[in-house]
Computed example of a mutant assay.
Amino acid sequence: MLNIEQLRESFTRVYEGPDNLQHECDIIKEAEQLNIPLDTYRRLYSLKDNEHVDPYPKPDSWKKIASAWTTWFIYLPVKNKLFLLRKGIFWLLQKGVLLSVVFAIGHYIWTIPERHKQAIEQRKQAHYQAWLIINSAQQSQTASGGRNEALADLAKDNVSLEGVNVSGVSSDKLTYLRFIELQKAILQYAKFQYTDLTGANFKYAHLYSANFEGSHIPGANFSKAYLENTNFKNTDLSLLKYKKNIPTNFQEANLQDANFQEANLQDANFQEANLNKTDFRGSKNLTTGQVKSAKNWQQAYYSPEFRKQLSLP
């Protein structure tokens, strides 16, 4: 009975030079000696260069398939791995799969500039729609009317909101912008008069010369915001009682030249804030502890009575 070692030994005796006649004679002779049909011997001879590969794993559970095949492949000799990779690539080429994958990758790379251009156009269109919502809102319109989301989306995309005007009409008709997210927003000269900004987030925002006069901003976060020359005259910063007693936060904010005249500053946090030339004259519920937790508090403006409490001349 023929075994594989006899077959491999027979293959070594077949001539492999440029003389095709010699090669064909050896093929016929070896097939006759091993008593194998000529076509069968030719087919076996065509496989002589294939590397020996351990039997494929047969896990007893579908859950073990991935680990079994991975382990089997890892422990294969390098030459066997290369052989299988070549064989796999050849099979993919035969099936047209590899060409399809290459074409898809090429098409994806080729269309990157066009898709980038489309993304920019879509973003521009979204910004245009957001500005349309903001600018079309009537001053007497107290509800958000989509302004909250439009402003937040523009700020998130780093679009400048310099000079934006969302002011209400009076203390009885506040614009409703509660809990709006304007972190890092560019809002210099923005107008927020008579606006309900309860719980708004202005952390790191740039609010130079912004106007919050007459607004309601308990629980707002102005931590590390730039608030030089900002107007908080007659604003209400009193404690946000119905949401875990969150105070308005000006921690580490730059409040140079900011105006808090007649503002209700109950429990506002001024820790490490810059109070150089900040105007607190006529403000309500301000304590010496709040002031002294800040920087440059001696250079701020206070009423004569409050200056006495601070032991200032």
Rank of each mutant, 00 (worst) to 15 (best):
98 L>S: 08
70 T>R: 11
225 A>R: 00
139 Q>R: 15
227 L>I: 11
51 E>I: 06
264 N>H: 06
145 G>Q: 12
20 N>V: 14
256 Q>F: 01
89 I>Y: 10
28 I>L: 10
62 W>H: 03
217 I>C: 13
262 E>V: 02
57 P>E: 04
75 Y>W: 08
313 P>R: 06
250 F>E: 06
298 Q>P: 00
158 N>T: 07
94 Q>V: 09
45 Y>E: 04
11 F>S: 09
223 S>E: 15
219 G>P: 09
243 K>M: 09
164 V>T: 01
211 N>C: 10
61 S>E: 08
267 D>V: 03
289 G>Q: 14
188 Q>W: 01
126 A>I: 01
143 A>N: 15
166 V>S: 04
182 L>R: 01
292 K>C: 04
245 N>G: 10
69 W>H: 14
148 N>G: 06
204 Y>T: 04
33 Q>N: 14
193 Q>I: 03
69 W>Y: 15
298 Q>I: 08
101 V>E: 03
274 N>L: 12
81 K>W: 07
24 E>W: 05
121 E>A: 15
15 Y>Q: 06
61 S>H: 15
209 S>P: 02
309 Q>Y: 07
10 S>T: 10
286 L>D: 06
225 A>E: 09
191 K>L: 05
128 Y>A: 13
153 D>Q: 15
133 I>A: 05
2 L>W: 06
93 L>F: 09
11 F>Y: 11
302 Y>L: 04
205 A>W: 03
219 G>H: 03
295 K>H: 09
112 I>E: 13
275 L>H: 09
14 V>Y: 05
28 I>A: 15
6 Q>R: 15
197 L>K: 08
131 W>Y: 15
267 D>C: 05
75 Y>F: 09
25 C>E: 12
28 I>M: 10
312 L>D: 05
138 Q>A: 14
184 K>F: 07
227 L>F: 05
224 K>Y: 12
272 E>S: 11
88 G>S: 15
127 H>N: 14
248 T>D: 02
239 L>E: 05
188 Q>I: 00
303 S>N: 13
48 K>H: 03
145 G>T: 04
141 Q>A: 13
246 I>E: 03
257 D>V: 01
57 P>G: 12
83 F>C: 09
265 L>Q: 06
249 N>E: 10
128 Y>L: 09
76 L>T: 10
263 A>H: 02
249 N>I: 11
173 K>P: 00
301 Y>W: 11
188 Q>G: 00
